[in-house]
Design a protein around this nucleic acid. Sequence first.
DNA 1: TTCATTACTGAACATATGTACACAATGACG
DNA 2: CGTCATTGTGTACATATGTTCAGTAATGAA
Lengths: 315, 315
Amino acid sequence: MMTDLERKRLLYKIARAYYDDSLTQQQIGDRFGLSRVKVSRLLREAREDKVVQIMIASPLGSNADLERHLEDAYELKEAIVVTCSSLKTGVIVNELGRVGAACLARCLQGHEVVALSWGTAVLSVVNALPSLDLPDVRVVQFLGGLGEVEAETHGAELARRMAQALGAKPRLIQAPGIVKDKVIHDALVTDPQVTDTLELAARADVALVGIGVFEPGSTLLSSGSTLTAAEIKELKANGVTGDIALQFFDADGRKVDHPINERIVGTDLERIKGIKRVIAVAGGAEKRSAIRAALRGRLINVLVTDDHTAKWLLE
Amino acid sequence: MMTDLERKRLLYKIARAYYDDSLTQQQIGDRFGLSRVKVSRLLREAREDKVVQIMIASPLGSNADLERHLEDAYELKEAIVVTCSSLKTGVIVNELGRVGAACLARCLQGHEVVALSWGTAVLSVVNALPSLDLPDVRVVQFLGGLGEVEAETHGAELARRMAQALGAKPRLIQAPGIVKDKVIHDALVTDPQVTDTLELAARADVALVGIGVFEPGSTLLSSGSTLTAAEIKELKANGVTGDIALQFFDADGRKVDHPINERIVGTDLERIKGIKRVIAVAGGAEKRSAIRAALRGRLINVLVTDDHTAKWLLE
DNA sequence: TTCATTACTGAACATATGTACACAATGACG
DNA sequence: CGTCATTGTGTACATATGTTCAGTAATGAA
């Protein structure tokens, strides 16, 4: 009753009217004597039959493909791949910080709780943050302070500065990140100031984290830290590939059980995983395996990294 | 605060998520940390900036361009241009009938009033009509019968056959289309059977008409008709270029006032113009000027014609 | 400094769109 | 000649979308 050509012709006309002339389906129906529902179905058919083709131009100089593949491969909400001008860790971290900051700022609307870990990657994001005025936003530490108290990579300092940049309220943890033994840990955890803050962090809307590794140059090792060489060796022997906010995980991103966990004043990995938007900023060859582990374990859902690392993560 | 490349990248991602992955704007918002409204605006921006391009493939072998230009030039709801295999009037009319029938059938839903004129073009549509079952549709004549009563181009016969094909109810006008003088006309018009039917025709949802000309071969002239050669000559002298259902119009499609109008038992041109969907089926070189006149006067809003005529109408 | 202008925002609303459903028509197959 | 699956239909509804609006920040001119 309707030849193939006639049908195609109709599909063409309707598609044209809809997409080019932006008529509503109702208007198209009135015009061609069809019910609105039929127009809807014909439009679907036109898309399916490729009478309508929608092309999306990937911006030049972006790594759109890499990003998309990463998103698909690791179920990320978003991957941002930056083409870095150098392979030096310092340069990479700096450039990642810029886009990480934009990515973080983009999703702040005014009433969020933002949790953060510590480290150079987080620092570079904080440094690149635009100054905003979000008085109802709260910036919370994921874990107690680490590193030299005066250093700018110190957790409390980072949280304070981020809050300042955002015009937001900081919520600090007045305790170290690692304590000597379980007794001290348990004592600290009875302090409502500490527990309330950790509770708030666990319920954060957005998290900004780095990914830690036990490699020679890492901040954790060089920060005159409370973690001894022996302890680190033992953690590695237990399969620890990396950490996020001192929550240690293996090559598949699974939490590694170890007594040292009982000395960490911080937010449990499972609770971090439950946060809607966990933005990890990490790049450079040293971190590859740890990043892959975090991705495999679905510990994060937004990754900001460099192009070399991205390629490696996909091979 | 957001570089141009970052913005483009965002547009790309959002466009991709929307058009390729068919996420809703809400889902995209949740994923990228944006409000739904913002996603809506970014998508618009992506279309405007040609990050998203929508291409519609015109079916091969169709005259999509011609049709579109006709629609634009004459404010048509639809133009259908058929590439005819011959220039012979008979062949053209036949092929137009096929697509005209599809076009008519397409817009019948079940409760319409369909009005029709007469002539070979209308006949060929009626012949090509699929058989349907639309008991609540009514088929009404625009004007009294014309031509030999037994001939299949006769108005009443056409209406009857169309009604039969559609499984619909015919509503015939038991009177001639042209009468001898105004007295007879006025007498007929007091007959409620006639006036009610004409009233119904004027309120039709869809109309199917041919376009008449006073050329040597035309049906009107050769039908041993009630219109004398002298009358025709006079009409032409008055600027009549063509007719639709015996409503005469000039080269601009304006009604031509002439005493002969008072002898026509039919529906006034203005009322025909008011019908939502007036489908004209007409082609061939002889009818060019008349078709153009009807188009100029916006007397019809759907035109089914051949490619040669279409080109001529656009030059 | 002040003030006007502009650009952005999300909430609330009005529209537009997709889809589940019931129902009718068709055609294949026993 | 049923009867079963298939196809196609519009209605009614749930959802998705675009847009107006009022409020607020950013910008720039006086």
